[in-house]
């Protein structure tokens, strides 16, 4: 029977330590898998390279938000002080941009902060309250001291038996097929 008819959505394997997970990631990457992930309770240094991941594009998103924030703040202050409500205060020019910089900076930071959090969530596909890895009961350890490799069924190389054997061969324990029960 094919994996799809059995509702198999992936394979999960446990590894002992960050170091084991790191080396497993390199092997899964070199075996040609694409839709896999390495789960750990904390970020592991160098894991992006071990998994063959590109740098996150989040910086560009936040940079754009900062631009929007600063330019709209400056624009608002310019428009309000020169066009909509021009009032002479201490004999200063209507567009006294030096005095507008603190608010320009603050709004730039405000929008960047929102972009950093929301952008991170969107890039991660979060909030997503269900995922095949949650079929596994042992997966709850991932936020404590568990280190896991998951390979999703969407991967072109995925075959539940072969992938399972492969994960065992590189040192994975408690290998589990993620299946809707």
């Amino acid at each position: 029977m094919s994996d799809a008819t059995q509702n198999i959505e992936g394979v999960l394997a446990e590894f002992k330590s960050p170091s084991d997970l790191y080396h497993a990631a390199e092997k899964v990457r070199d075996a040609g898998y694409k839709n896999f992930d390495c789960h750990s309770p904390f970020p592991i240094h160098g894991m992006d390279g071990a998994m063959g991941l590109k740098r996150s594009p989040l910086g560009w998103i936040v940079g754009l938000a900062a631009l929007v924030g600063t330019s709209s703040a400056l624009g608002l202050q310019w428009w309000a002080s020169t066009i909509e409500y021009p009032i002479i205060i201490s004999g200063k020019p209507f567009f006294s941009f030096q005095a507008y910089l603190p608010i320009t900076f603050a709004l730039g930071v405000l929008l960047s902060a929102f972009a950093a959090l929301i952008g991170m969530l969107v890039l991660n596909g979060l909030p997503r309250f269900f995922h095949p890895v949650f079929y596994s009961d042992m997966f709850a350890k991932v936020t404590d001291d568990g280190f896991f490799v998951s390979v999703e069924a969407a991967d072109p190389k995925f075959d539940s038996n072969q992938t399972r054997a492969f994960l065992e061969s590189i040192g994975g324990t408690n290998v589990e097929v993620l299946q809707k029960s």
Binding site: V62, A113, A116, L126
Partner: peptide, 30 residues
């Protein structure tokens, strides 16, 4: 929000954290 601790998530997460730290630094001084 359904956090799974996958490195594909940590990758964006760590950069978000770094950026937030980076923008909070001039903010707190300002």
């Amino acid at each position: 929000v359904g956090w799974r601790g996958g490195n594909r998530q940590w990758k964006h997460y760590e950069l978000a954290y770094l950026i937030l730290a980076g923008i909070s630094t001039p903010l707190v001084l300002s």
